[in-house]
């Protein structure tokens, strides 16, 4: 598969290949940044910083076919660090106050996701937003597939609890 070939070359230090890799996954990375940071400015800054970090560490990638997920994880880690630093949060009340028009469902699920631990957030994001296979997640995190599945279940359970506390589960 061509993507894997390009990834292999990038890992070996081919600068052109690295650029191609970034081009291949830039939309995914940008959307990931946007999902966590919620605005264009911060998402663009994230693109720059994550490109920087990826370039420095690209030679450490062991599995070229997981390049996309590897990059997404760098992005998620960066975003979560940024969020922690700025202690940014969105509460549905606050956003509705400033006239932020977003479907209530999405606001709530986003809040619910934000209430999860960093590890669970990343897991939910990879599985449901990136359709990453359990097998791939397991290999990248170096844990058994069973553990991935049970962690996912736990995360979904937390989401359910959060949403039911807000009393909005029935809306779906």
């Amino acid at each position: 598969m061509e993507e894997v070939e390009i990834a292999k070359r990038a890992i070996r230090g081919d600068d052109q290949a690295f650029l191609k890799v970034m081009q291949l996954y830039k939309d995914t990375l940008y959307r990931t940044a946007f999902a966590f940071l919620k605005n264009e400015h911060d998402a663009l800054e994230a693109m720059q910083e994550v490109t920087f970090r990826a370039y420095q560490k690209i030679h450490t990638v062991k599995e070229p076919s997981y390049m996309k997920t590897w990059l997404v994880r760098i992005m998620m880690n960066y975003c979560q660090d940024q969020l922690k630093k700025s202690k940014r949060y969105s509460s549905s009340e606050m956003l509705q106050e400033i006239g932020f028009r977003e479907d209530a469902i999405h606001l709530e699920i986003n809040e619910a996701i934000a209430s999860l631990s960093n590890v669970e957030q990343q897991l939910i994001f990879l599985k449901y937003f990136q359709n990453t296979k359990i097998k791939e997640i397991a290999e990248l995190e170096k844990i058994p597939e069973g553990t991935v599945k049970s962690r996912l279940h736990k995360a979904l359970k937390s989401l359910r609890n959060f949403l039911s506390e807000k009393g909005d589960v029935d809306r779906v």
């Binding site: 600068d15 690295f18 650029l19 970034m22 081009q23 830039k26 939309d27 940008y30 959307r31 946007f34 264009e40 663009l44 800054e45 693109m47 720059q48 910083e49 994550v50 490109t51 920087f52 990826a54 370039y55 420095q56």
Partner: peptide
């Protein structure tokens, strides 16, 4: 979500340049 292509490309270029 609308993806600002040119701005993203710039950000990538900047990132690579800094890394080099």
């Amino acid at each position: 979500v609308v993806v600002p292509e040119q701005l993203i490309n710039n950000a990538i270029q900047q990132g690579i340049f800094q890394a080099k």
